[in-house]
Design a binder for these strands. Structure first.
Lengths: 206, 206
DNA sequence: GGCTAATGCTACACTATGTTGCATTCTAGA
DNA sequence: TCTAGAATGCAACATAGTGTAGCATTAGCC
């Protein structure tokens, strides 16, 4: 990625990683709001002033911590072919659940009561945009204009977050593949119907 | 409940209402986190010390403000018959969308980036529990044990939140009935399938 | 109209934030 | 290996927000 970008000082990498880890651990324990910068630096065994050499404030640290996770999801999503299916024929949802499984501790916190609304909303918007992108590839133009695609996209994005939240709150009793299959198959029927001829747009009703 | 509890002093009612309104307005403008108690009391034109005569802290005020909204939803849901349909044959979702419409300003904030994760999670759990209650009334026992009912419930609860969020973020372009119909009909197909004989539980896959 | 409770006002202790200056330590590169 | 420079540690400071207390004033209730 950033090959010739001379690597930052080893101390810098270490400090930032310590702060990231400390924030994540503390959010799990106390919730984001209750975490003070002092708590983070105490846990990371770093001077508080050092914190401000790397991050503007607590939220900045959170967002940068998110970026690493977010980049991973984007990279995985890039492997999904235009028809919304993976090479093995499974739906794109598998990618999402696998991604969550590998960052379970992070998502368990962020989707919980002690999480951050901005994060949840951001994930929903991202998933919805992915959904819309797939739909534009797959559906005929006439259907796209007739259907409230965005509304359905946000519905499905919220559904995925709901599935993931339940999964995490119950310590992931199913594999990512099982969750993806359950989630996808419950939803796919309704979506197939929505794209069929007899589906009337909401505006058509009184 | 507290029927003969002599009404609180008129000043008390006025003060609390002013503080509630001020909090809601400020959350819209600055987001919950950025609102200080001083901001609330300034906006409400109330002494800061008076705030602490009525509420423990900012979160306490938020939760009490939520209770009024929550009670309204519960009361509406109580009118839904055991089969999940209203007297006019429309699904329970209509109740939810009408409720949201009447508290649009509140939900628009709470479901946004400037909202509160605890609120979003609480709503999802509530909707999921309602969903499970309906399903237990409707489905044969054998199916209930075979299906991961809770998982599906949280999926649908998240879906409803997604639909509502999109609706609010786009200034409610459809009526509550139209949204309920769209939302319900996209989802109902998948749910009907999930309760049919050929639906295999996730645990049955490898 | 008077009693009482609610409110306004001032002050205080406490905690957290973000910044500065300087000493110390460690890394990277010649 | 040695050193210049950067990263860190440390102490101090100004600022802002929180929650509480005491007392004067005002408004509601009977």
């Amino acid at each position: 990625m950033n090959a010739p970008t001379s690597r930052p000082d080893r101390r810098v990498q270490r400090t930032r990683q310590l702060l990231r880890d400390a924030l994540m651990a503390l959010i799990v324990e106390k919730g984001y709001d209750a975490v003070a910068v002092q708590d983070i630096t105490d846990r990371a065994n770093v001077a508080r002033t050092t914190f401000y050499l790397h991050f503007r404030d607590k939220e900045d640290l959170l967002l940068r911590s998110m970026e690493a996770v977010y980049d991973d999801l984007t990279a995985r999503m890039g492997q999904v072919s235009p028809d919304g299916l993976l090479a093995n024929g499974l739906p794109a949802e598998v990618v999402a659940f696998e991604h969550v499984a590998e960052h379970a501790a992070f998502y368990r916190v962020m989707f919980s009561s002690r999480g951050v609304a901005a994060f949840i909303v951001r994930v929903r918007r991202y998933l919805a945009s992915q959904f819309v992108a797939f739909a534009r590839e797959l559906l005929p133009a006439a259907l796209q204009t007739r259907l409230p695609l965005e509304a359905i996209a946000h519905r499905e994005a919220g559904a995925l977050i709901g599935s993931i939240s339940w999964w995490l709150e119950h310590d992931m009793p199913y594999t990512p593949e099982q969750m993806a299959r359950l989630h996808y198959e419950v939803g796919a029927r309704g979506l197939l119907w929505a794209t069929s001829a007899d589906a009337a747009p909401p505006a058509g009703e009184s």
